[in-house]
Simulated scan of single mutants.
Amino acid sequence: MPNILLTRIDNRLIHGQVAVTWSNHVGANLIVVANDEVAGDSIQQSLMDMAVSGMETRYFTIQETIDKIGLASEEQKIALIVKTPQDVLKLVKGGVPIRRVNIGNMHYSEGKEQLTSTVSVDEDDKKTFRELHELGVQLEIRRVPSEKGQNIISLI
């Protein structure tokens, strides 16, 4: 069973807030980015690695994450970072044991409704969050550890 301490939706993936604040808060020593695009882009990986100090990183596609996360050792304390709720749903349906999701950043764009200052959703996002909720996943909007979390289900 992989030791996943944090699963976070953040469309910026790795940046200072994730690399320092959240990882230290949960005690992670490995950041796994599950994203099909970044898994094949060494330039984006190098840029994200610049934000990380004293911690290992892995960049996997969604399918690689499903296939490999169960091979993690007990010593690997994992912060799992994804871009979208749809990615989380694929991971959960693929057997990754995710029980709680921290929703940090989902940028506003055309067709999205702003729920909080950092989280905007469209109808597909709402549908996906409801499905994750039905699968027993706790879904909390929380930008930084010191903030009080909000259950996204109560907002959609």
Rank of each mutant, 00 (worst) to 15 (best):
G27W: 11
G27M: 12
G27E: 03
G27N: 07
G27Y: 08
G27P: 11
A28N: 02
A28T: 06
A28H: 01
A28P: 05
A28M: 03
N29K: 12
N29F: 07
N29G: 09
N29E: 03
L30R: 01
I31G: 01
I31W: 02
I31E: 00
V32P: 05
V32G: 04
V32Y: 09
V32M: 11
V32A: 09
V32K: 08
V33L: 00
V33E: 00
A34Y: 08
A34W: 08
A34H: 08
A34I: 12
N35T: 03
N35R: 01
E37G: 05
E37F: 11
E37H: 10
E37V: 14
E37T: 13
E37R: 12
V38M: 00
A39V: 06
A39D: 09
G40Y: 07
G40P: 09
D41G: 07
D41Q: 10
S42A: 12
S42C: 06
S42H: 09
S42M: 09
S42I: 13
S42K: 13
I43P: 01
I43N: 06
I43L: 15
I43Q: 10
I43G: 04
Q44D: 11
Q45C: 01
Q45W: 00
Q45L: 00
S46F: 05
S46G: 13
S46Y: 04
L47H: 06
L47E: 03
L47D: 01
L47S: 06
M48C: 06
M48F: 03
D49W: 08
D49Q: 15
D49P: 13
A51H: 13
A51D: 05
A51V: 14
V52W: 08
V52I: 13
V52M: 10
S53Y: 10
S53L: 13
S53I: 13
S53H: 13
G54P: 14
G54W: 08
G54C: 12
G54K: 11
G54Q: 13
M55P: 09
M55R: 15
E56H: 13
T57D: 03
T57Y: 04
T57E: 02
T57R: 07
R58N: 10
R58A: 11
R58S: 10
R58G: 03
R58M: 14
Y59W: 01
Y59K: 00
Y59C: 00
F60E: 12
F60Y: 15
F60P: 05
F60A: 06
F60D: 10
F60W: 15
T61G: 07
T61W: 08
T61N: 06
T61C: 09
T61Y: 06
I62H: 02
I62T: 14
I62E: 05
I62Y: 02
Q63E: 13
Q63K: 14
Q63C: 07
Q63H: 05
E64L: 06
E64F: 03
E64M: 10
E64H: 08
E64A: 14
T65H: 04
T65A: 14
T65E: 07
T65P: 07
I66L: 13
I66S: 09
I66R: 11
I66C: 10
D67N: 14
D67H: 04
D67T: 05
D67R: 02
K68T: 06
K68M: 12
I69A: 01
I69F: 04
I69D: 01
I69T: 01
